[in-house]
Design a protein around this nucleic acid. Sequence first.
DNA 1: GAGCACTGC
Length: 701
Amino acid sequence: MSQFWKPGTEKPRILEDEEGGVVYLSHSLSSSSSSSSSSRYGYASIENQRQRLPVYKYRSAILYLVESHATSIIVGETGSGKTTQIPQYLKEAGWADGGRLIACTQPRRLAVQAVSSRVAEEMGVKLGEEVGYRIRFEDVTTPDVTRIKFLTDGVLLREMMDDPLLTKYSVIMVDEAHERSISTDMLLGLLKKIQRCRPELRLIISSATIEVKTMAAFFQPSKRRRRLEGDELGPKMDPAILSVEGRGFNVQIHYVEDPVSDYVRAAVSTVMLINDKEPAGDVLVFLTGEDDIDAAVKMLTEEAQNIKKSSSGLVILPLYSGLPRADQELVFSPTPRGKRKIVISTNIAETSLTLEGVVYVVDSGFSKQRFYNPISDLENLIVAPISKASARQRAGRAGRVRPGKCYRLYTEDYFAKEMSVEGIPEMQRSNLVSCVIQLKALGIDNILGFDWPASPSPEAMVRALEVLYSLGVLDDDAKLTSPVGFQIAEIPLEPMVSKMILSSNELACSEEIITIAAILSVQSIWASGRGAQKELDEAKLRFAAAEGDHVTFLNVYKGFLQSGKSSKWCYTNCVNYHAMKKAIEVRGQLRRIAQRLGIVLKSCERDMQVVRKAVTSGFFANACQLEAYSHGGMYKTIRGSQEVYIHPSSVLFRVNPKWIIYHSLVSTDRQYMRNVISIDPSWLIEAAPHFYKQRHNPVLH
DNA sequence: GAGCACTGC
């Protein structure tokens, strides 16, 4: 065993850049690696395996930085082992002594589960004891026993509602911070605030991109604060930066010489070229969405049939999240001997899923990205160029098993000069209603002055404040109202859905509304079509309610319960069994929360008018009136006179009631309303007098 | 008669 640095002993040799207050560690200075030279095929103990990870060389440096700096930023490519090893190093160094906890957050649930079970295995303990995890619905930890806890960043944000200073934790490691999700950014902003009250708390920000200057600048204390701190004992407030190399193989990058006009066609011919010229190895193609992917699969299948050479066999598989589970799993099956697997995927393969055996990547340079317009309050999905960071991540997918190649369907000049370094943080591309209410609930009064890693536009924040005001969540001073505001903040759903649940109490239909809220929170309860469109439409008719989609959901739920929650029943009725199971889980959680908030669980039996009124109380802002019968029924929103249409998947498509409320809009060539319910316009003034009366709406008066 | 990049509480 090599000697590790312990607090109080001589520090390891590290270069310090006092000017910027940033610590760099050059590779040559790192402590000697004790990576074992035993054959990689031979037996290696867990300890040996741990020591072979690139991060191991930096063990004492990391512990030194964490001891001496309030915030350490660790840059490490995939395969460095930072996620599994750093929490263990911290525990070994005593950071979990005295009943304290080490936290490590992840953006995704699956990662939380995978990483925690790996770490438990390495430590030789039972998952849920010394090492545990927590995600929504699953708290696999034991109080006073668990020392290392993996959790989603969303869960840690929720934990702050009960314990605003997160006092249980001695170190919090925020992993995958480069992804810049809304909850990661919120967490970073809040952790920076917590640090001021808890100087003993240590933060580790873990990022895969080299561009960490902005992150370091964010955690840099202001000059004034630094003066105040003076020479006090304790960690330096200046963030430290440490870079750890990854363990990926080299990936050779190829660019096109001239820009391509049709990236689907270009992707297909590139795959054919790889198949023709390159040795065995699977291919991963990044396109933007279902349409692109289906087109590419079709073209490739045709081309492959045309050549039909003796040995050339392609296994062509699409991959996107909307694909039925069984089809998704096909991409993980081993490639048959003599065949080449071609996976054509969305961004899901960039971060969420890892495919082994990929040696060639084809990168279109585009992905679908969400953009939010605070003026129209609309979120749109738009095909947009990816960032350099994304391009690098995609390329890295080719180097997991052996040296690979990445074919970029854009020019080198474009990559160098036009591609942005990093993507726009999600915070700046989204509706902020949920985010703002959560900050308010944590006592952040000055939302416009909140110190974010990347500030959203003032327009977006003002819009969120307006919506929350109209829902009665905020008062004239933009403070959370009591009890409504606090209750809505407590419910882990969009505020408009939460408002609907609160109103269901007075309307005595909480059981029905909670069912609707649960079903709206899962992707879709209908089995995705794939050639069975007719069956799906027929199945929908069996459940269809004249009132609209929300009431239809209640019928499906009733049928599912009567079948004994049968998967066979789901199959024959084109209902997605997994989605129903998830909805039932969410429903259980919501019932518990509702009870805690004093909502009486009560069914309205067959009275659907109260159900529609409850929906109206949350979604009054989405009310529309039928204007014309063109294109199957053109509606206009009452609020903004925006032209909208009922989505053909709705049970009210072509039924066209005069007044409806929609749950959400999808924007394509038109604005389509998904999940609509018919209402009586008089309910609007009843539900939101301030919202509709102040506008002197001629339609309603 | 059309479509859902990806997450999360």
